[in-house]
Structure formats: structure tokens, C-alpha cells
Design a protein around this nucleic acid. Structure first.
Length: 351
DNA sequence: AACACGGGGAC
DNA sequence: GTCCCAGTGTT
């Protein structure tokens, strides 16, 4: 039996019931695919449900303010996905009259839709014979066919796409593509796959050569950078309402368009004296305030390639500051998890 | 070709 | 701690 037939059979017997498997509507499939980029199904599922509920159609998404999209995306990470999703929705509504692109080549023009996602939507919604190559497919193909070319090298990317195209099932690429990914996620898992019970174990190259643990091969990634964040959290009162200040992050780098407190970044951890000397500059005002450190030890917030050593400094200001945000409105803004966690802890003490 | 971009869960 | 997740965009 050909490889693709084995995958199809396995899929029909083992596929999970997932919310986006109830439809072939390209809007829903697109939404699910963007959410699931570099994201596990269990983590992405509640976000899919939440987004579909708030934005049932591409029109609802297009007319929403970006802030609302980011707020719903809060906690999922890779926030450019949310911004691109929103931009693509606007493009579909304004330039395509609300009609979703229906081919791989047209889908590829949407912001945030690359080779994988265009292939996924084209095959799942329209059965276009385009192979998907995600992390699962790299692993399954590398093991089954015994390929040791690094999956993240230029050569590997080309090789695996070509191999994927060669072995796919063109007639039912819709189920085949979902099947090979599901097979990689459930059966041919990264760690300790249970090959003894695998229906493909009689023809798996890696298993026969005892190489399952060595495949796929991946080139090392860059190491993490340490950064030292000092958030200045001004607290002041205006007309009996407690307020603070947050800014929207702009420019390059992490958390674009998400909100955070005024930030002072330093080369290393700094102490109370250094904060006192500088904080009026960052807050753009002579605060005259009492400064205290909220968290005794720096919080280390870990991103894929940055470790953010973070201290929150509470600055009690005795007068009004411009652009104050009432503490009661704090949880309406889209903020990174680091800030959301702080707000939660801060709330228990100050609200 | 190399790097930036989040957060969480499994081990 | 390490690895990796239904990858994409930028330089």
C-alpha cells in the first residue's frame, strides 16, 4: 500500500474532532491556520472559538478596530499574526468585494499567508493538489523516508516540499494533508513515538535503521539575548480616580502595537538610586514621587530568543499627569503576558 | 541565508 | 534547563 493510502486510512480512524473540521468555509479555515502557526492545537482552540464568536465573518473582522483584534489575541503570542490577519480581512473586503481567494497563488498574496498556509487553505477548502509542509510533515517524511538533510536549511526546505508533492494523494489531498499533519502530531510525535503500535512501522526507514530519535535533523538556532527592563508604573489620583500611564509599543521588535508601562531599558539590573535619578526623564515630568520596587527579584520573562529581566517600579506621583488611564480600564487594553501578569498582581494590592 | 517574532507544555 | 509547536516577514 502506498504511503499516502496508509496516511489516509490512519486519519480516518484516528482524527480528532476539532472545531474547524466542521466546515470548509475558507474564512474559518484561514482563521484556524493563522492561529495554529507555531501553536499547539490545545493552546489555539480557545482562541479560535473566541475569534469566530466575535467575528463570524470576514466582514466583522474587517470592520473591527485593531485594538479589539489584538485584545482577543492577547496571550497567544506572535502578535504580527493578529495585525496581518486584520489587514488581510480588510483587503478581502475592500479589494476582493468580500470574496475569499480560492487558489494557492491568490491566497499567497494575503498578509500572513505563506507557503504552508496557502497550501493548507487551498487543499482543505478547495482540494487543490498542493502539499502542506509544516513541522509535523518534516518529521514524518524525514523518518519514513530516512532523510537527514536539515529541515531548516534552504536545501532541506526545497527537498521536503518536493518530496511532499511526490508522495501526496492528489485525489483526496484535503484529507491527506490533514492526515499527515495529524499523524505527525499524534502518532509520529517528536519525543518517544510509540513505533511498536504504528501502522507504518513495517515500512518506516528510520525505524528499520534505528534512527527515529535522530530524525528530523535541525540546524542550531541563535542563542537568547538577555535584556533588562524597568517598567515605571506611575500611580496618581485625579478627581478621586486612581490612574496610571501606558504607552503603545511602536517601531520594530517585540509586541508591536501592544501596550506597556513607560519603559527604561538598561544594560544590567539597576537599583533604586539609578531609577530615582532617571525616572522623571522617562515619565516626562518631575514627579517628586516616592519610588518603590514592586517585585524584589527581577522577573525573568522568557521569549524564544530573549530573556527579559524585568523590574516594576511603582512611582507615587503627587500631581496629575497627562494621558492618565484609570486603573479600572487597565484590563481593556491589549498587553503582553508579562504586563498582564503584573497588572493582576498589582490589582490585588492596590485596587 | 540568517534572524526576529510569544507563549506554553512536555520531559 | 531543552525542545517544539498545523510558519511568516524582514534584512
Amino acid at each position: 500500500m502506498p504511503f499516502s493510502q496508509k496516511i489516509l486510512r490512519w486519519y480516518h480512524e484516528n482524527k480528532r474532532t476539532l472545531p474547524w473540521r466542521k466546515t470548509k468555509n475558507p474564512y474559518n479555515i484561514w482563521l484556524s491556520e493563522i492561529i495554529l502557526q507555531q501553536t499547539r492545537v490545545v493552546q489555539g482552540t480557545p482562541y479560535y472559538l473566541k475569534l469566530v464568536e466575535n467575528f463570524p465573518t470576514v466582514h466583522d473582522l474587517a470592520k473591527a478596530p485593531e485594538e479589539k483584534v489584538l485584545k482577543l489575541w492577547q496571550g497567544l503570542g506572535y502578535y504580527s499574526r493578529a495585525r496581518n490577519l486584520h489587514a488581510a480581512a480588510k483587503m478581502i473586503v475592500n479589494e476582493y468585494d468580500g470574496r475569499f481567494p480560492r487558489t494557492y497563488n491568490e491566497l499567497l498574496k494575503l498578509k500572513g499567508v505563506g507557503d504552508y498556509t496557502a497550501s493548507a487553505i487551498a487543499s482543505i477548502c478547495f482540494n487543490e493538489p498542493e502539499p502542506v509542509v509544516d513541522g509535523n510533515v518534516y518529521r514524518v517524511l524525514a523518518r519514513y523516508y530516512g532523510v537527514d538533510i536539515p529541515i531548516n536549511s534552504t536545501e532541506g526546505i526545497k527537498y521536503f516540499k518536493k518530496l511532499a508533492r511526490k508522495v501526496m494523494n492528489k485525489e483526496n489531498v484535503r484529507d491527506y494533508n490533514q492526515g499527515i499533519m495529524e499523524f505527525g502530531a499524534i502518532q509520529c510525535a517528536p519525543k518517544k513515538p510509540y513505533c511498536l503500535l504504528c501502522p507504518l512501522n513495517d515500512s518506516c526507514t528510520a525505524l528499520q535503521r534505528n534512527k527515529v530519535g535522530d530524525l528530523p535533523v535541525k540546524m542550531n538556532k541563535a542563542k537568547v539575548r538577555n535584556r533588562y527592563f524597568n517598567y515605571l508604573v506611575p500611580v496618581f489620583e485625579k478627581d478621586g480616580i486612581k490612574k496610571t500611564i501606558l504607552h503603545q509599543r511602536k517601531g520594530k521588535g517585540i509586541w508591536q502595537n501592544m501596550w506597556e508601562f513607560p519603559l527604561m531599558e538598561s544594560e544590567k539590573e539597576i537599583n533604586l538610586e539609578e531609577i530615582k535619578n532617571k525616572h522623571s526623564t522617562v515619565l516626562n515630568s518631575d514627579t517628586n514621587g516616592k519610588v518603590s520596587l514592586f517585585n524584589t527579584h527581577a522577573i525573568v520573562h522568557k521569549l524564544s530568543h530573549q530573556h527579559l529581566h524585568t523590574k516594576f517600579w511603582i512611582v507615587e506621583v503627587d500631581h496629575d499627569l497627562p494621558n492618565g488611564i484609570p486603573l479600572s480600564k487597565l484590563e481593556e487594553l491589549p498587553v503582553p503576558v508579562l504586563i498582564a501578569d503584573f497588572i493582576k498582581a498589582f490589582k490585588n494590592l492596590y485596587f
